[in-house]
């Protein structure tokens, strides 16, 4: 009886939070799913049901397909760059925990994550500038041909990957550091007694034991990679003096379809595709890392 009362009390206590969560999180998702089946131009009261027509059109829309390919490359590129680098940097910082500079290292790596995106992206835009950028100056110094970083179709995508990774790295390192600090020291001591080198301990102890952390960090990194927008927008912003190639990404395409082309139903179908991709990839990551982690 008491248990039931407690359960009811707990449910009642949690209900307001659940209600807010449902309203601000679940309702927009459900409404986006619904809108994707309608032809709606945001302005009209008339909203005809068109079934899966928006999705059929998406499959033949070269701008959407470009955006999908670019976004996927960026998301996986950021993941591939961020996770190993974060793991190694976190290990190095953890190894130097007792150093007087440990705080400095942690702060230095984390700062890009808290810096406002627009000024940071503007700074990177200068770094990548074909004529005045330090990156090309460096290449030139070593006799390597200078590149049109922000204009070449391939290089401009790489630039976004670099910028996103630079931002994501600090957060990933911080989470990995927490993971490192929670690893049992006795295991490392035992490994040391057995003659394992630092590198071997890292490879055979740290990496397997940090799998839950890797799962969390990789899911967060991949999801934010698929939601890339501002980086692509700022690097190719319409500043008249120095524009760049507009790398088409999914969120940008959605915004354009919603508010410039006034095709909200169509943009909603893009959002649904993005949601499905992110969900599937997250499930794959969970199945790959969680099961092995348990074993």
């Amino acid at each position: 009886m008491l248990k039931r009362k407690r359960f009811i009390f707990a449910m009642l206590a949690i209900l307001p939070t659940l209600a807010i969560f449902a309203y601000v999180r679940l309702y927009p998702i459900a409404d986006t799913l619904r809108l994707s089946l309608y032809q709606w131009n945001i302005l009209s009261k008339n909203k005809p049901f068109i079934g899966l027509a928006n999705f059929r059109e998406l499959m033949g829309d070269h701008l959407f397909l470009d955006a999908l390919i670019n976004t996927t490359i960026i998301a996986f590129g950021v993941l591939a760059l961020t996770i190993p680098m974060a793991l190694v940097i976190a290990a190095l910082i953890f190894h130097r925990t007792r150093s007087r500079m440990a705080g400095f290292y942690e702060t230095a790596v984390f700062i890009p994550h808290v810096v406002s995106l627009v000024p940071a992206a503007m700074a990177w835009k200068w770094i990548f500038d074909a004529r005045l950028g330090p990156l090309n100056a460096l290449l030139d110094f070593f006799g390597i041909p200078m590149q049109n970083w922000l204009f070449d179709p391939v290089l401009s995508v790489i630039c976004i990957i670099v910028l996103c990774s630079w931002q994501a790295l600090g957060y990933a390192v911080l989470i990995y550091l927490v993971g490192f600090k929670n690893l049992p020291v006795s295991l490392y001591e035992a490994a040391k007694l057995d003659g394992a080198s630092g590198r071997q301990s890292f490879w055979h102890l740290s990496i397997p034991m940090l799998k839950p952390i890797t799962l969390y960090v990789s899911v967060v990194t991949l999801v934010s990679g698929f939601n890339v927008y501002a980086q692509a927008f700022v690097l190719a912003s319409d500043a008249q003096g120095a524009p760049g190639r507009q790398v088409r990404v999914l969120v940008l395409d959605m915004l354009e379809n919603s508010f410039r082309n006034y095709r909200v139903g169509y943009a909603a179908s893009e959002a649904v595709v993005l949601l499905v991709i992110v969900l599937v990839l997250t499930l794959i990551q969970f199945s790959m890392l969680r099961e092995k982690g348990k074993a």
């Binding site: 074909a130 004529r131 049109n148 922000l150 008249q240 003096g241 120095a242 524009p243 190639r245």
Partner: peptide
């Protein structure tokens, strides 16, 4: 070329 400074800003400079 695409990477050259362009438009009003470039003209003014």
């Amino acid at each position: 070329s695409p990477e050259m400074p362009a438009d009003a800003d470039a003209f003014e400079r």
